[in-house]
Design a protein around this nucleic acid. Structure first.
Lengths: 225, 225
DNA sequence: CCATCTGATTGACCTAAATCAAGGCGGGAT
DNA sequence: ATCCCGCCTTGATTTAGGTCAATCAGATGG
């Protein structure tokens, strides 16, 4: 089944696709298709030869391994917006785990040989990919640091400052997603986010108008994060 | 200044070096040297041409950017065991940030052109790197999930199960690092780790003898994580 | 042998944030 | 209009885990 434009756009934002030029991406798309899995349906088994790697559009994929003792161990749960089996794709050989839909799930299946060929034949693309992945890893390290050594309030402030465009005229942020999604990304409950914003509003540091937040004192906020 | 064997070993464990063969690594080492920075000393400036990328041996590196408005913004703090400026190395051009020692700091400076040349001339190496980085990213995603949606006790149990060798005869774990380091990795205080272990001991789920921990009921523990 | 130091443990206490519960508000559909 | 139904906010309560502090066991060293 082919990808619709919304799926393609979502896929393009994935870290393995973002570094591709438009023509390269179109080339990859020509070797891709959508698979819809029912709950529990198997996508591939441990030991199968690697033919594709995947990107989750919706639902959740369960990557599990069957130990010699027979018990099944969940190795990873893959959520929308993330790839899986890319490491296997790059190395070739056989899949080290089973992949099943944990619920009804849609994935993009991308041709493994084709993508490896693309990377092999293009040193520049390879370096772009490595560069992109390096940056992503630094972001994730920072995210882990934030979660462990900053308070919820500090993470909220950090998020607001992050969203602030570089040289913006008025220091204001428009939230592009519902507040409960932001709360989840920051690792806090929606109630807590609401309370933090209320407290900052009380201190005159910000103004909140629905999804529009004006940062009244960027310096003070920066000192708090 | 040259690397001593301990430094080289530490560097080899970094994600960019782990995929290299011994001869490739030796080749990289031949183009590497150690720089010792005093507190506040500059390693490179924003806008300098990219000549090296780096690995922190000890201390902390402060990566900061000077905004047009003149104020200095800390972009990243890099701790021992991590690389920095690798993304810039892969892309070439100029460093997008300043790098300074936040305290007295030792780093390995690796020749940028040489490493890029190595990767460019060796498609297999390139794929090994991409594969390794993919795996690392999955690990980090899991770490973030753990931090946000598991309790401290669950993370401790998860850690113990992780350390458990695949088909070990006796289900026991020998802690290779001091407890306070483990606590830090799990994002909790040493006191909390101690309490969690005490509670598990109280429930007869584990036995603790100094740095040796025996898992009495692996299944029960697995259910709790 | 004692002095000291480091890491681990335990207790008392406190704070940040989760949870539970009750409205409020705007946008659709009927 | 009225009724819902998400989404957000706010309040009351609970709890996990951090902080502070005392103690203890081993290690090191004079």
């Amino acid at each position: 089944m082919n990808l619709n434009p919304a799926d393609a756009q979502f896929l393009k934002e994935g870290y393995l696709m973002a570094p591709l030029s438009d023509t390269e991406f179109a080339d990859v798309l020509a070797h891709a298709n959508v698979r819809t899995l029912t709950q529990g349906e198997c996508l591939f088994n441990q030991g199968d030869p690697v033919t594709h790697f995947f990107f989750v559009l919706s639902g959740v994929i369960n990557l599990c391994r069957v130990a010699p003792s027979g018990e099944e161990k969940v190795m990873d749960l893959v959520r929308p917006g993330f790839f899986f089996a890319e490491a296997a794709m790059f190395m070739g050989g056989r899949y080290p785990v089973n992949a099943r839909g944990l619920e009804a799930t849609r994935v993009v299946a991308l041709d493994s040989k084709h993508f490896v060929g693309l990377v092999r034949g293009n040193g520049d693309l390879c370096l772009r990919l490595l560069s992109k992945m390096s940056r992503r890893m630094h972001e994730m390290i920072n995210e882990i640091d934030n979660l462990t050594l900053h308070s919820g309030a500090q993470r909220v402030i950090g998020y607001l400052l992050e969203q602030l465009p570089e040289g913006a005229a008025s220091p204001s942020v428009k939230l592009s997603v519902p507040k409960h999604v932001i709360a989840s990304r920051l690792g806090i409950q929606p109630e807590t986010l609401s309370r933090v914003l209320a407290k900052l509003r009380g201190k005159q540091l910000i103004d909140v108008h629905d999804d529009m937040i004006v940062l009244n004192d960027v310096d003070a906020l920066r000192r708090l994060s």
